[in-house]
Nucleic acid binder design. Structure first.
Lengths: 86, 86, 86, 86
DNA sequence: TAGGGCTACTTCCATC
DNA sequence: GATGGAAGTAGCCCTA
């Protein structure tokens, strides 16, 4: 025997939350679409958002490793070594 | 020359919305976790939620096709043919 | 100092494998497309493939739980209780 | 009435191809794991692989847009403008 | 540490 | 041809 009321409550709570989540996801889409309409590059915008989520120090470290690898493969470095350039 | 203020506004709006979205996603997780703690099967709960999102008629149709295929392959039908059973 | 040759070998191995993987993925797409051209329902085909990956006993058990929940919610059971029908 | 043999053939072809695909995916995992064991940074390796998939010109263009945005937001540019440095 | 779930991104398809 | 939505894929995260 299942606790009907409890089950119903759970399902309804989840459905309501999912609905809210969807609304917000749609809002986000709208913002991107509007930005695109104003001439912004959506891909680059996404990249900006993603970068801001990350710790700059960690990021810099990752860049350095990546450039080391690119260099070892004879590829152009992506991230300039600003310090070294001076 | 980029519209700095416009860009900043876009980024901030997205970040705020994403934050809200994350909050809700966490709430959903909590509900599932609590349900699990009360003895519910999370996988089945997810299935219930998913099923309720779909049009029952469409669903029934898909089930029928699937059972036809399963039958043709000599596998047990998943969905009973209620009409046939009567 | 990075082991250039080792790095190059790793990258080339991965790239070769990814290429092979893509070839196969394309083949799979082709099969589905061809099946669709012959009148098969792709969604149902995917469902068949997925079902066959799973242990029938586990599957049956999951179905039973799901139907219990659906029943508690006053929804139509998806999976007939074959035993009960007799 | 369904073309049983045709269906069976389709399903078997897909299953065989999926099996092959899985084998290759596992091989790729193995290469990464082995690389990690040899001290390589897997995340950076993945980045290298991804970068090599893309047209350098397109990439450079995307970098430029991104840096423009980062600059407009008062964030440090990621990609040095090598030309400007000279 | 291996597997499964979740999220985000991309691609594909159908529609207009 | 563009736009929207659905599906597949990949990478990350967390649990067992």
């Amino acid at each position: 025997m299942i606790a009907k009321d409890q089950l119903r409550t759970i399902v309804e709570r989840i459905e309501r939350l999912e609905e809210q989540k969807k609304t917000i996801a749609d809002d986000i889409k709208d913002v991107y679409a509007e930005a695109k309409g104003n001439g912004f590059d959506v891909k680059a915008l996404r990249a900006v958002i993603m970068l801001r989520k990350h710790d700059p120090a960690k990021l810099k470290e990752q860049e350095a490793i990546l450039d080391t690898y690119l260099n070892a493969l004879g590829m152009l470095p992506l991230f300039a070594m600003k310090e070294a350039a001076e």
